[in-house]
């Protein structure tokens, strides 16, 4: 065998062994600020269905290679809500608005906060706000969760409530926690902290648009929110086309989703406000963006 091949093979073997060694010892690697490969986990860890469910799909398109030209996650297109939805006894499921609840026709100062689902929902809600004379501000915290928003007594929620002084709040959060185990034990405190900061301000919590049954986030949110303040986005009659990442609804679907939420706010929520269908498809509003949190 040529010496150059021996040298290259030796180089690859040493690199593999070094990477393997770090993957066996996460702590040492993190002390050095290094990231580790997943060799150890790939080879020795017994696969669990929940882990497999969260494996990102490749994003490839159009390499001219037939295999990669088909966006894998598109199989989720039109994902339906399975009959095994985690929502069981949440108070909002059985909520029926009393007949004497009248629509609040005053102009609202709306604050819309949440995760990257706002990228799809916000432009449509902004169009509603503009058409109905409401003012609107939005805060998008990418990759955020109830834990991230609810940390330190939900300090960020307090900050934005203080800053924008809203009299109506929309929140869309929970999509990053669909598969968290023992969710109530881990996240209930943060949900409670967020809701505490809302105080008496009327709000609508838009539940995540599952593409498969969750481990309890919808049930927990439904049980935690005030009666008539939680919109369940995961029901058999809701179908959302997915973007290529397999999770976010597409532009058109996100608009349809927001339309359904607004119809629900007007007809079924505990605090209906004026949300007539706008002629414009989308609009913009003041938006603050927060970095993904660790």
């Amino acid at each position: 065998m040529k010496r150059s091949y021996i040298g290259l093979i030796a180089l690859l073997v040493v690199a593999l062994v070094a990477t393997w060694a770090f993957s066996r010892n996460d702590e040492a690697a993190s002390m050095l600020g290094l990231n580790t490969a997943t060799f150890d986990k790939t080879l020795f860890a017994a696969a669990t269905s929940s882990e497999q469910a969260q494996v990102p799909q490749p994003k490839g398109r159009a390499t001219g290679d037939g295999k990669r030209s088909v966006p894998a996650p598109r199989g989720k297109k039109g994902a339906t809500a399975a009959s095994t939805s985690s929502v069981g006894t949440g108070n909002n499921e059985h909520y029926v608005r009393p007949a004497n609840v009248a629509m609040d026709t005053t102009k609202k100062n709306i604050l819309f906060i949440g995760d990257s689902m706002l990228e799809g929902l916000k432009p449509r809600l902004a169009a509603y706000a503009e058409a109905n004379g409401h003012k609107m501000n939005a805060v998008i915290w990418y990759s955020s969760t109830t834990e991230i928003w609810g940390r330190n007594g939900a300090v960020k929620v307090r900050e934005y409530v203080k800053k924008f002084k809203p009299d109506y709040i929309f929140i869309s959060l929970g999509g990053n926690e669909l598969f968290v185990s023992n969710i109530q034990e881990k996240r209930q405190q943060y949900v409670d902290a967020i809701l505490r900061e809302f105080g008496n301000i009327p709000y609508v919590w838009i539940g995540p648009p599952n593409w498969k049954p969750d481990t309890g986030i919808n049930k927990m949110l439904s049980a935690s929110c005030r009666d008539g303040s939680f919109y369940l986005s995961y029901t058999p009659d809701q179908h959302y086309d997915r973007a290529r990442d397999g999770a976010h609804p597409t532009r058109t679907s996100a608009q349809a989703w927001m339309d359904r939420v607004c119809t629900w706010v007007v007809n079924k929520s505990s605090h209906p406000i004026r949300l007539n269908r706008p002629s414009k498809t989308t609009a913009s509003c003041h938006t603050e963006i927060l970095q993904p949190a660790k």
């Binding site: 180089l11 690859l12 040493v14 690199a15 070094a18 990477t19 290094l34 990231n35 580790t36 490969a37 969260q54 990102p56 799909q57 996650p73 995760d115 990257s116 689902m117 990418y142 990759s143 955020s144 999509g175 990053n176 669909l178 598969f179 990442d245 397999g246 999770a247 976010h248 970095q291 993904p292 660790k294």
Partner: peptide, 29 residues
């Protein structure tokens, strides 16, 4: 030196593949 460069590239890939620097991975909206 080649080995160090190779390992540096591997580390770069791992760093960029981690959740902290990928704001929009599938399960982290």
């Amino acid at each position: 030196v080649k080995l160090v460069v190779f390992l540096a590239v591997v580390q770069l890939v791992l760093q960029f593949a981690s959740a902290e620097v990928q704001p929009f991975i599938y399960n982290q909206f």
